[in-house]
């Protein structure tokens, strides 16, 4: 798998800096020393959440372009796709969770920090439209540093265009469930991430608008350790639940069952 170091089977834990062997990360990708949850690729996330072999990708023909010839962007895209094995920072499709159908969009922080660009925006709009037509709940798993600056306003307008699609979903009374994972920041947190009918944060995730480094620059005091953490947001009433990774699937299963949408996963668009 591409998220492993090219040379071997050891990875450094982002949180404690210890070297952890592949086998020690285990099924849930948790550091055995400090219990930090490793960021998942979209594919890993899918495997953990949905019924085996139930994921059916929706069309994803879009490909990122360096249309503004922004310095270094083309190289970054090439590197991101080589390192992550993904073609962009999101995958969309239909799936089943404990036999309940849904439309699922999973962002991938391994591709340019999951930043929102024209491709991610277009795919998310498609996921909304499909969920609306087939009357299936839409689950969006966010993992993003915000808007992708290299695409300028073309990326920024993902925020209002996705929100327009979300408004149609809401008008059609199709539920939107957002799962906020590490990290969910900027243009993603300030658009669809917090527009879920149900918002669940994965334990340990950092979630906020402005980055902690930027905020720290503006103040003399040290930010608390749990600043912008899922747990802090939950205490402040900003998310409905904080759920540890191994329990996320069961949580989503309960949410889907509670909406009891009929829907049709196999409908032709």
């Amino acid at each position: 798998m591409s998220h492993y170091p090219k040379s071997g089977t050891w990875q450094t834990c982002r949180a404690c800096g210890r070297h952890v062997h592949q086998s020690q990360w285990g099924q849930w990708r948790q550091c055995p020393y400090c219990q930090h949850w490793q960021r998942l690729t979209a594919r890993q996330r899918l495997t953990q959440l949905v019924d085996p072999a139930s994921f059916q990708p929706l069309p994803m023909p879009e490909q990122a372009h360096d249309a503004l010839a922004f310095p270094g962007y083309q190289e970054k895209l090439t590197t991101a796709s080589h390192q992550s094995g993904a073609d962009e920072a999101i995958i969309i499709g239909t799936a089943k969770i404990a036999k309940r159908p849904c439309v699922l969009a999973v962002m991938d922080s391994h591709f340019m920090m999951g930043t929102l660009n024209t491709v991610v925006s277009r795919r998310l709009q498609r996921a909304c439209a499909v969920a609306q037509r087939r009357r299936l709940p839409l689950i969006v798993v966010t993992a993003s540093g915000g808007a992708r600056m290299q695409e300028g306003l073309y990326a920024l307008f993902g925020m209002n265009l996705i929100l327009a699609a979300v408004a149609r979903l809401a008008a059609a009374a199709v539920p939107l469930i957002t799962v906020l994972t590490d990290p969910t920041m900027g243009g993603v947190s300030a658009s669809f991430a917090f527009k879920g009918d149900v918002i669940v944060a994965e334990a340990g995730a950092k979630i906020g608008f402005a980055g902690p480094r930027v905020i720290q620059q503006t103040m003399p005091a040290q930010l608390p350790a749990d600043f912008q953490s899922a747990e802090q947001l939950w205490r402040h009433g900003m998310v409905d639940a904080v759920v540890a990774r191994p329990d996320l699937r069961a949580y989503l299963q309960t949410v889907l069952a509670s909406y009891a949408m009929g829907g049709n996963a196999d409908a032709i668009d």
């Binding site: 917090f194 906020g208 402040h236």
Partner: peptide, 18 residues
């Protein structure tokens, strides 16, 4: 960029207005 704005939901407030 301030802890207060984060605390009171800058993300939600911007999303709601958009």
């Amino acid at each position: 960029a301030s802890p207060e704005s984060e605390r009171w939901g800058q993300s939600q407030a911007i999303a709601d207005l958009i």
